[in-house]
């Protein structure tokens, strides 16, 4: 199950559907809002998503992981909205009979999610400025005048 959530993530509720007597391993990943990025002091983060496509692509990633690593269960949830330092931004949990598959699958899911999901992150810096991550462009002659 993959979901985009506009509300804070509740860990016990996220874990609950993974309960499975066949599972010998649960591996989870938590992505937290940290206070710095590329040398700048970060105060908060905004996440925005194109929800229908993010959820469809997220389900595809989970299906790939299940097939590839023989998982018993896989859940991932990504926050949208304005998050504070320390907030939980993304949670991934996978179960498998043995730990090796669970570790690898968890890594696969978070890596693919970061690369593929239509989710955007805007950092708010201590300096008062903001930036959409990965969207910086070099101002050339054509764009400089429009930026004003």
């Amino acid at each position: 199950m993959f979901r985009i959530s506009p509300t804070p993530l509740e860990l016990p509720a996220l874990r609950a559907p993974l309960a499975d007597a066949r599972a010998g391993a649960l591996v989870t990943f938590e992505g937290w809002v940290r206070d710095h990025n590329e040398g700048q002091a970060v105060q908060s983060l905004e996440y925005e998503a194109y929800v229908p496509l993010a959820e469809a692509e997220g389900e595809r990633i989970l299906a790939e992981a299940r097939a590839r690593f023989g998982l018993l269960g896989a859940v991932a949830v990504h926050r949208v909205g304005h998050l504070a330092l320390g907030d939980l931004a993304v949670w991934v949990g996978v179960t498998a009979a043995h730990r090796a598959a669970a570790f690898e699958a968890c890594r696969y899911i978070i890596d693919e999610a970061k690369a593929r999901l239509p989710i955007w992150k805007k950092e708010h810096y201590a300096s008062g400025t903001t930036a959409w991550i990965n969207c910086a462009t070099r101002p050339g002659p054509a764009t400089a005048e429009r930026r004003g």
Partner: peptide, 29 residues
């Protein structure tokens, strides 16, 4: 680009009634 909720090629055909979304470089996680 995405057309009607699915990723689409840059040269995919557009038709009247389509919903088009342009997807800037992503940064989830």
């Amino acid at each position: 680009a995405a057309i009607n909720g699915a990723f689409a090629a840059a040269d995919a055909p557009l038709r009247s009634g389509d919903l088009v979304v342009f997807i800037p470089p992503v940064a989830g996680g």
